[in-house]
């Protein structure tokens, strides 16, 4: 991409190279190095997932996918994402509204705290919920001791056979934790850049708070919100480390798709593992495609605003 230099000084195609670009040789070399690196580290793994998934043919692939264990893993993964994504979405909008539209002390601390789950290892993300809800944990000490301190709650949980750790609620909580910052992170810079003039104008013109949000703010942030939701969903469905700590890995009951992949792989059923993995790889590709589409729309929206 050559910068716009007035043609008066530098007519194009003079044979001499442009003073602010590289020689064709260097250019091709750099493109070659970049593409080689990307093919080796990104493209090849992606192709190999699908190749190995179909290594034993279409029949085996379908057989693995419609296996009850796989179907239950798909169901659990969808449930976890269906709970985690909307909750984090509401949180993201709330946090972005507070941070972008108002001034208050400690805003930077709040921003850092929102980012915290990104810097925590997935294994630790699972561990913290075991420490809170597990048998040796905070709640466990209250409920499971010989003389539980909250007998009514302990009895109620026992009566209804509600478990948190090594059960579905734990998986959902761990998923919420690891996907916590995604929507907020997308929306905060976007809403900060947009400022509050439009919302203030709407209010002055008589719109209620909700009307302002639905008719002014939401149309402005919809692509950013969608972008955050897509990334949040991809992570929610693909999370492995955190979920693996809290799930207990009971097949057909508390195995999500990534955990099911591990189980098949550990059984030396490699083709089966890759068949299930291909579903998640497909999800990744759809995510990337949607991301491209959203970015395209966002850019178009910005251009309209500029012009």
């Amino acid at each position: 991409m050559t910068p716009d230099v007035p043609t008066l000084h530098l007519p194009r195609r003079t044979g001499r190279r442009h003073s602010t670009s590289e020689s064709p040789f260097v250019r091709r070399l750099l493109i070659g190095v970049a593409l080689a690196f990307l093919s080796l580290f990104l493209f090849l793994p992606l192709v190999s997932v699908f190749t190995q998934a179909f290594a034993k043919g279409m029949g085996f692939y379908v057989h693995t996918i419609v296996d009850p264990m796989t179907l239950s893993a798909i169901k659990l993964t969808l449930i976890a994402a269906a709970i985690a994504v909307p909750l984090n979405c509401v949180f993201g909008v709330c946090a972005a509204w507070t941070i972008a539209k108002f001034d208050f002390r400690g805003k930077n601390i709040l921003l850092t705290l929102i980012d915290l789950p990104f810097s925590v290892s997935p294994v630790i993300s699972g561990l913290i919920y075991v420490l809170v809800f597990g048998a040796q944990g905070w709640l466990g000490l209250y409920l499971n001791a010989d003389h539980p301190r909250l007998p009514w709650l302990a009895n109620w949980l026992n009566d209804h056979d509600i478990k948190i750790i090594f059960a579905v609620p734990g998986i959902v909580l761990a998923t919420i934790f690891v996907t916590f910052p995604f929507v907020a992170r997308e929306l905060i810079p976007l809403m900060q850049a947009q400022g509050r003039n439009e919302e203030e104008a709407a209010r002055v013109l008589g719109a209620s708070g909700w009307q302002t949000f639905w008719r002014v703010t939401l149309p402005n942030i919809k692509w950013g919100l969608l972008y955050g939701v897509i990334l949040c969903n991809a992570r929610a469905m693909g999370e492995f480390g955190a979920v693996s700590v809290v799930s207990g890995k009971i097949r057909g009951q508390t195995n999500t798709l990534p955990l099911h992949i591990e189980a098949l792989y550990d059984d030396y059923n490699f083709t089966g593992a890759f068949a299930v993995a291909s579903l998640l790889a497909l999800l990744a590709l759809v995510t990337l495609g949607l991301k491209l589409w959203v970015e395209h729309n966002q850019a178009a929206l910005n251009e309209v605003e500029v012009s």
Partner: peptide, 19 residues
């Protein structure tokens, strides 16, 4: 190619691991 750069973000780690 630009879109593919984000693959490690989008691809679940377990899939990346076995691959």
């Amino acid at each position: 190619v630009d879109a593919l750069v984000d693959l490690p973000f989008a691809l679940p780690t377990a899939v990346a691991g076995i691959t």
